[in-house]
């Protein structure tokens, strides 16, 4: 049984003038130990989705089952107890401004009703893990964004949760700080086996830490699976948009018919493009190429612009397919 099960989850906001369907029939299973990325454009409903996981937002329909417990059936008291197993960190850190670093870390444990001596001991441990021992008596206003997020992570970890939910946790941070926070999250996941759900609009975040990814578009969960699967064979329009937006925007791709080919391991040693040009006498324009490390495996992709002539286009595609490469059309929406 999955640690987090979402079944036919629906959330509708009813206003005076209009109703907004923020989430429509979401089904998702997240297992213990996974780092699950939930990605989508802003307004796609991903923040609402993560708030449904700990019932900060009550779903309009469907079930949220955490560790076998259906959240809708819990009493308010039982729900509060469950929330101590499901910590959350936020885009704007949400620290208590009037408490110092120690006080902020202690806060979650005070809520949980731990004994003072135990809290003090645990605060020291947490400070060690996030590397802020020398800053323990500072107030949030005296810390950088990255340091504040480390305090928030320490606070989230202090109650020994099974799950950590991250709502755009790196969106307010610069790239280097983002990397260090993501590394910290990965470390926590690997050392303590804590399941992490990461909400983001940045593909690079998913690429660098997630094991699995779900794509949310306009209230629908359009695609999910391992990061490798979704990256190499994006099925949905939204997934393609998110993956190619990065590729396309960097290279400034523009032109008529373009294809995307994907290399995985074996194919990368063979001179494919040279072969294509020499054997088929088809000239192609390399618009974009890169190799990325996705979940520890090298993964290459290339976007080629094909000549105008239809016959030559087909020849090139046939040749590439014969080399056992996956070939996909890159259509106008992709960039």
């Amino acid at each position: 049984m999955a640690l987090i099960e979402l079944r036919h989850l629906t959330k509708t906001f009813r206003g005076k003038m209009q109703t907004v369907e923020a989430l429509r029939d979401i089904n998702l299973s997240i297992h213990q130990g996974e780092i699950y990325g939930i990605i989508g454009m802003s307004g796609a409903g991903k923040s609402t989705l993560v708030r449904c996981i700990n019932f900060l937002e009550k779903p309009t329909g469907g079930q949220v089952i955490i560790d076998g417990k259906d959240l809708a059936t819990l009493t308010p008291k039982a729900l509060r107890a469950l929330r101590q197993d499901v910590s959350m960190i936020f885009q704007h850190f949400n620290l208590l401004q009037q408490r110092d670093v120690r006080g902020n870390i202690a806060f979650a444990m005070e809520i949980a009703g731990m004994k003072k001596a135990d809290i003090e001991r645990r605060v020291d441990e947490m400070l060690e893990i996030v590397g802020l021992t020398d800053r323990q008596h500072n107030y949030p206003s005296q810390l950088s964004g990255g340091q504040q997020q480390r305090v928030a992570i320490a606070r989230a970890l202090s109650t020994n949760p099974k799950i950590i939910l991250c709502d755009e946790a790196t969106s307010a941070l610069d790239p280097q700080t983002t990397t260090s926070i993501l590394n910290l999250l990965r470390e926590i996941n690997q050392k303590m086996g804590i399941t992490i759900v990461i909400i983001t609009h940045e593909m690079s975040v998913v690429e660098s830490v997630c094991t699995h990814v779900a794509i949310v578009d306009n209230g629908d969960l359009v695609e999910n699976g391992t990061v490798e699967q979704v990256f190499s064979q994006p099925k949905s329009e939204a997934a393609r948009k998110l993956i190619f937006r990065k590729a396309g925007a960097d290279a400034g791709v523009m032109g008529d018919r373009m294809i995307r080919i994907v290399f995985e391991g074996n194919a990368s040693s063979e001179p494919i493009i040279a072969g294509l040009v020499m054997e088929c006498h088809v000239a192609v324009n390399i618009m974009y190429a890169d190799t990325r490390d996705v979940g520890g495996k090298a993964f290459g992709q290339m976007i080629l612009q094909l000549p105008e002539d239809h016959l030559q286009q087909e020849k090139a595609i046939y040749y590439l397919q014969n080399k056992n490469l996956r070939v996909e059309e890159v259509n106008g929406h992709a960039h």
Binding site: N54, L56, L79, R80, A81, L82, R83, Q84, V86, S87, M88, F90, H92, N94, L95, L96, Q97, Q98, R99, F107, A108, E110, I111, A112, A152, R155, T159, L165
Partner: peptide, 23 residues
């Protein structure tokens, strides 16, 4: 946001009032 954070930790309403809002 700070109140939401407290809720996400399972704080009760009295805890939110006396440990978060008033301080």
């Amino acid at each position: 946001g700070v109140i939401e954070a407290a809720q996400s930790m399972g704080a009760s309403i009295p805890q939110i009032v006396f440990k978060v809002i008033i301080p």
